[in-house]
Structure formats: structure tokens, C-alpha cells
Simulated scan of single mutants.
Amino acid sequence: MADEKIIPTLYEWAGGQAALEKLTEVFYDKVLKDPLLYPVFKDMSGDHSKHVAHFIAEVFGGPKLYSEQDNGSHASMVAHHVGKMLDETKRKRWMALLLETADEIGLASDPEFRAALVGYLEWGSRIAVMNSTTTENPVKEGEPMPKWGWGEPGGPYQP
């Protein structure tokens, strides 16, 4: 099938691991300087930005670094938000800083990619806020990692 087009993953379109690690590194540097977000993230580990880059990479169709190298899971990512008491003001600031950073580092800016990126970030950040007000992780170990693509029907999960 020579004329069959191969559609790149969001991970590939974003620029791969190096681009996502740069995004999260620059972003979390900003977070630590932000008066609203600093209290939430002040105790994060030195590896936090890399783990988040690994998570996003896996969700966007890249290598399974988060689940295999970092020994993480969807449940463990959600667990980091449980009890943090996030709110809409913090969520919006988090979103604004992340999208500002994406522009600053030159992450792919075409409308299709940015729509997928913003869709994922809106979905994930709203779930983080919901889970931050609970005391128990609603995601059980062994549940699949989210998978995000170019807006395929069926939502972010694909078996």
C-alpha cells in the first residue's frame, strides 16, 4: 500500500521525548516561580518534570517510559493529585503557564496539534482537580494508561 498515509502519533508530531522533556523542564521552572502554584509544587522531586514528560509521551503514543522505566501507572499519576485540594484558579494558571511554555519552546503550533494538546490538558487538568478533593484514589492499579490521539471517536482510552 504505497499510497497509504502513515499518520504520526502526537508524540512524534510534538518532537519526541526531547521536546516533551524540554516542555516540562521549562514549565516546572516557571511553576516554582509562580506565587499561586508554588505552594502546590514546592516539595516535588527533582525528577518530577521528567516523570511528567514520560507520562505525556506514553499517553501521546510514545515509548512506555512512565510505566516501564519509572514504574508508574495511571493510578500512580492520579494518586499524586489526591488530597491536594486544587481549584479552578490553580488549574487555569497551570494551563496558561503550560501553553505559554509550549509557545516559548517552539512546540508544534499547527491548529490540529494544538487542539489535541489543549483537549488532553483540559481533560487531564479537570480530572486532577476532581481527584484532588478526594481522599481515595478512584483509579485502581492495573487500569489502562490514557491514550490520546488526533480526536478519534471513543475518547482518550483505547484498549
Results as ranks from 00 to 15, higher is better:
Met1Pro: 10
Ala2Glu: 14
Ala2Tyr: 11
Asp3Met: 07
Asp3Ile: 06
Glu4Pro: 00
Lys5Asp: 14
Ile6Arg: 14
Ile6Met: 09
Ile7Met: 12
Ile7Tyr: 15
Ile7Leu: 11
Thr9Lys: 02
Leu10Ser: 03
Ala14Val: 00
Gln17Phe: 01
Gln17Ile: 00
Gln17Asn: 05
Ala18Arg: 06
Glu21Val: 03
Lys22His: 13
Leu23Asn: 04
Leu23Pro: 04
Glu25Ala: 05
Glu25Gln: 13
Glu25Cys: 04
Val26Arg: 07
Val26Ile: 09
Phe27Val: 00
Tyr28Asp: 04
Tyr28Ala: 01
Asp29Pro: 00
Lys30Ser: 06
Lys30Tyr: 12
Lys30His: 14
Leu32Asn: 12
Lys33Phe: 03
Lys33Cys: 13
Asp34Trp: 13
Pro35Ile: 06
Pro35Asn: 03
Leu36Asn: 03
Leu36Arg: 09
Val40Pro: 09
Val40Trp: 06
Phe41Ala: 09
Lys42Tyr: 10
Lys42Val: 11
Lys42Asn: 05
Met44Asn: 15
Gly46Cys: 09
Asp47Trp: 11
His48Phe: 15
His48Val: 03
Ser49Cys: 06
Lys50Ser: 15
Lys50Trp: 11
His51Asp: 10
His51Cys: 13
Val52Lys: 00
His54Phe: 15
His54Gly: 05
Phe55His: 14
Ile56Thr: 10
Ile56Gln: 06
Glu58Thr: 03
Phe60Arg: 05
Gly61Ile: 13
Gly61Ser: 05
Gly61Leu: 12
Gly61His: 08
Gly62Met: 01
Pro63Thr: 12
Lys64Ala: 15
Lys64Met: 14
Lys64Asn: 15
Leu65Ala: 12
Tyr66Asn: 03
Ser67Asn: 11
Ser67Asp: 03
Glu68Asn: 14
Gln69Phe: 05
Gln69Ser: 08
Asp70Trp: 08
Met77Gln: 09
Val78Asp: 01
Gly83Thr: 01
Gly83Pro: 02
Lys84Asn: 06
Leu86Pro: 06
Glu88Cys: 04
Thr89Ala: 12
Trp94Leu: 02
Met95Cys: 02
Met95Tyr: 13
Met95Phe: 14
Ala96Phe: 09
Ala96Trp: 04
Leu97Thr: 01
Leu97Ala: 10
Leu97Gly: 06
Leu98Ser: 00
Leu99Arg: 10
Leu99Lys: 13
Thr101Gln: 07
Ala102Trp: 09
Ala102Arg: 06
Asp103Gly: 08
Ala108Val: 06
Ser109Gln: 15
Asp110Phe: 08
Arg114Lys: 10
Arg114Asp: 12
Arg114Ser: 08
Ala115Gly: 15
Ala115Ile: 03
Ala116Leu: 11
Leu117Ala: 02
Leu117Lys: 07
Val118Gly: 02
Gly119Pro: 07
Gly119Cys: 05
Tyr120Trp: 15
Tyr120His: 15
Ser125Thr: 11
Ala128Arg: 09
Ser132Ala: 02
Thr133Ser: 04
Thr133Ala: 00
Thr134Gln: 13
Pro138Tyr: 04
Lys140Glu: 15
Lys140Leu: 10
Glu141Cys: 00
Gly142Tyr: 12
Glu143Gly: 00
Pro144Ala: 01
Pro144Met: 02
Pro144His: 02
Pro146Ser: 05
Pro146Ala: 04
Pro146Asp: 00
Lys147Asn: 05
Lys147Ala: 07
Trp150Lys: 03
Trp150Cys: 02
Trp150Gly: 04
Pro156Ile: 07
Tyr157Leu: 07
Tyr157Pro: 02
Gln158Ser: 12
Pro159Tyr: 01
Pro159Gln: 08
